[in-house]
Amino acid sequence: MGVNPGIELIDKNGKRTDGRKVDEVRPIHIEAGVLHRADGSAYLEWGNNKVMAAVYGPREFNPRRFQKADKCVVRCKYNMAAFSTSDRKRPGPDRRSQEISKVIADAFENVVLTEKWPRGVIDINMEILQADAGTRIAALTAAAVALADAGIPMKGMVAGCATGKVDGKLCVDLNGPEDNYGESDLPVAVNMTTGEIVLLQMDGHLTGREFEKALDMTVKACDQVYQAQRDALERRFTAKLDELEKDTPAPRRGKQQEAKEVVEAEVA
């Protein structure tokens, strides 16, 4: 939260520097299933944020001493690429990224049906390729799609957003300049089925009344984020459908032949 050198962040018409209204989320686009090796993956662009997220597992947690006897562990790694920030970021984990990894892991432990895989681990890796305010929520939003792409059972999708205070006004989803000179930040993630809060952080200064309003605004804004997540998953699984319905090939019937089988396959 730097000191504003005199930039007007909200104009007299209530419009923000990028033309948004105070309760408007930046454009979000997500693609699911973009990586070849990961069990599930998603690429997200949210404003100028660019994030890649991938999921491996569930798989056995080694070494064994980290295992939980009755459930699997959700392990997160949030990392910023060295070139993602305006000054080059030194590679490797720092205190900030470790904290973010932890709160995101806690959020997903809440929704993933971890009891299905005792002694297991689910690994979530989020790489920030370009950072522009709100990267932790962007990372979490992409990770939730990657989890769904991996087919991991969950009690509900997790979507998130943040609300900050800019020029004394509450605004959802701060952009870069707003984040630099804003007066507070309240990132929240919600289980979209139950409405429960699964991630909550707060930084800066808000009055009690402002806080309550900010929380309501954030939870409401999560709907817009959730819609982008749904769109991505629907496109992932139905993209080919429209194409197929247009032109289904008419096959020539081949000859039936008695299969020479060594092992008869069982039908599931």
Partner: peptide, 22 residues
């Protein structure tokens, strides 16, 4: 991949000379 009563596997075997186990 197996298909109903192995129908999909049998279809593959109509065209491909191989042993398959799924």
């Amino acid at each position: 991949i197996i298909g109903k009563n192995g129908s999909m596997l049998n279809l593959i075997k109509e065209y491909v000379e191989c042993w398959l186990f799924v």
